[in-house]
Structure formats: structure tokens, C-alpha cells
Design a protein around this nucleic acid. Sequence first.
DNA 1: CTAATTTCTTAACCTACATCATCTTTTTCC
DNA 2: GGAAAAAGATGATGTAGGTTAAGAAATTAG
Lengths: 195, 195
Amino acid sequence: MPFDLLLSNVSKFIHLESNEKEIFVSYLKQKKLKRKEFLLSEGGVCKYSAFVTEGCLRGYTVDKNGDERVLSFAPPGWWMADMYSLISQKPGILNIEALEDTDIILLSKTDQERLYIQVPKFERFFRILIENSLVANQQRIIDNLSLTAEERYKIFCKRYPALIDTLPNKQIASYIGVTPEFFSRMRSGLLRKGL
Amino acid sequence: MPFDLLLSNVSKFIHLESNEKEIFVSYLKQKKLKRKEFLLSEGGVCKYSAFVTEGCLRGYTVDKNGDERVLSFAPPGWWMADMYSLISQKPGILNIEALEDTDIILLSKTDQERLYIQVPKFERFFRILIENSLVANQQRIIDNLSLTAEERYKIFCKRYPALIDTLPNKQIASYIGVTPEFFSRMRSGLLRKGL
DNA sequence: CTAATTTCTTAACCTACATCATCTTTTTCC
DNA sequence: GGAAAAAGATGATGTAGGTTAAGAAATTAG
């Protein structure tokens, strides 16, 4: 079943009756993205939450020097959206791109709101999802303020273990907030120390 | 009425019938904190969400060098909690301290969950609250990665206009992620340029 | 399979911000 | 109101990480 990963993800937080499950599934759309294909571009309005089942997405902004800053990655089992744009339905700042061929499940903003009304439990599900995301983001702010690049890299490795080997180093560098050049130096330094 | 600010805050997002309002209010407790008094200390379990009606709270962590890192301020109309600890009910990392004599309204975690059951609309209210908080935190991550200290300071001034004059500079420095010494130099530089 | 593109590495030099130390000013609180 | 404590300013010096440049290695896509 293509929705299995998502449904088991949901059932970690709320119990669904089979009719509720049906309503939920009826709102879902599958989509495939080719490597380098965009789900959303800066300035566009984000109309969907995307749940990754295969592959990987990244969400990033482009700063005024043209440098890319990765806000988040979404490997299988993770959600991705430009939350600012999704909530406000105004043009966003995030680019969401497939790092490899990627399968996603889409839930539109309007369907999500219908779902809240028809199956109010989903208010709870998404609240919990967002709470967890908020906590992770707060921790990242603290880490960015307190830690060195090397320490942040170690944390990255714990948070996204599946990505360490599959992602180009420059993407990881951007996520932890250093240049690819410095990241390269740092890693060779790390390696000399063992690990 | 001591709960007016909170109730008008809530009614921006959900409409409450008068009995629902009564249930909500019955769960609220008022508390006064003296300047420098703590609502929560690192390692403690966060049992309450606090809504500030007067004064100001700050939430901060202490890093391994003993330096304080301010995660957030809460002037009147803002909520404050150690979200990680509140959700997980495990020992947290945040210290929450009153920067001046401060009046708060407390909602305990257990009462909040009762509220979700009795008045499910509150799932929506808190979901929206947390969504907005998540967006602000994501933006702060991007800003910390992309912007200079000076640019982050300007953003701080927009985000917390009421605090610019009342807060000690070292607290602001900590929030934007620089030392008080550098902040002082930066400001005198800014002032020379006008503003 | 191969040319083109992207990614990685290394090196020399640069800068935003940190640290440490000292002094002045402001705030606190008895 | 005045001593003590906290906050702020400023100078000298240190460093994590940025920038630029250029070649080597790996991936991609035709």
C-alpha cells in the first residue's frame, strides 16, 4: 500500500477508525518528483504539505549574496512544507527541491482544513507534529548560538543518520551553516582525530 | 478582569461560548513573580504554560562554558514554556526567569489536556499558536545562518519593539548571539550612522 | 563511454566577532 | 542616599570560519 508509511506514522499519535482512515486517504494525492525537480519555488504560495515515502527533499532559502541556506531535509517518513506560506497563503521564501528521484504524498491546505472539521482528531495529530518540530527548531537555534561547526556536525549526524552518506557534503555544510571549503577542512580534521 | 488580555488573545483565533470560557478560566491560575525569580530552572520538569500579563520573562540555557543563551523573551501577551520538557515531561534545559516583577497566568499541562477533551476548539487554538511560533523560529534559524549581527539586531528591534529600551543590552546581545562587548561596539557604530 | 558538470580538496589570505582586561556609568537595594 | 553590584564602553589581541583561486575527483547525462 503506498500510504502505509504515512498511516503508520499517523497511528503513532492518534487512533483512527476505518471510516476516518478512508476520509483521510481520500484527501491524499501521490506524486513523483525527478531529481532536481522543485515542489515549490521562492515566491510561490505553498498549497500542500508533503510527506516523503521515498527519496529526499530539501527546503532552502537563497540569501542576498546568492548563497543557499538549507533549513531542512526530508527523508522518508518526514513532512515538508514552507510553513510560513502554508499558514498565511502568502508568497513564501522557501525552495523545496528533490535531491534525488522522490515519491511524496500531498495533502492540500484546503483538504487539511476539511479534515480538521470532519475528523477533529487530526487537529491533535498535526498539533503534536508541529510541537515536535518546534522543539527541534528551538534546539537548533540554541546549538547554532552555542556550538562550534564541528559540534553541530556531530549533531547533524545523529539527527539524519541516513543522510550522511547519501547527501553531497555541500548540502550538509549549508545545513550546519558553514562553507563547503571549511566543511571539507573540518572533516579532514575530524578524520585525523578518528571519526 | 485579570484574564482579559488572555481571553482577547484566544478570541483572535477561536470563538468561545460563555460556558466554554468558564471552563477555560476555571483552569487558570494567577501568579506573581518578583524580579529575578525563576518560574523554572534547568533540570526541572515544566508543568505549566505561562501567559504574561505584566512585566517580562526570559527563557535561556547555560552552555558548557557557563555562558547564557537567550532563546526567547515574553512581554505581555506572549506565552512562555520549556516546550521540550512540557511535551515530554522530562527534565528540561531551559531556565525561565522574570526580568522584572511579572504577572503571569498559568495553565498546567494536565489541565491543558483536560481542556482539549472538554473544549476541542483549544486543540485548534494551541495548534495555531505553535504554528506561528514554529514559523518565527524557522525564520530565526535562517537569519542566524545568513545575516550579520547588525542585521539580526535590526530584526530584533522590529520583533520586540517594546523591549529595546527596557531590556539590559546584554540580554539583547545574548538573544542575537554576540558578546556584550561586541554588541556595545556594534551599537556605537550603528549610532554613528544614525539609528 | 565520454564530455560536461558538479563536487571536493587544499592553500594563502581576510574579517567578523570573541576574549581579556580595565575603566566608567547606571542600577539596585538596604 | 550611598555602598555594592551590575551593566556598559573601549582598547589590544586572538581565532573560527569566510573568501578566492585552482586543480583533482566524482557524478551525471547524452
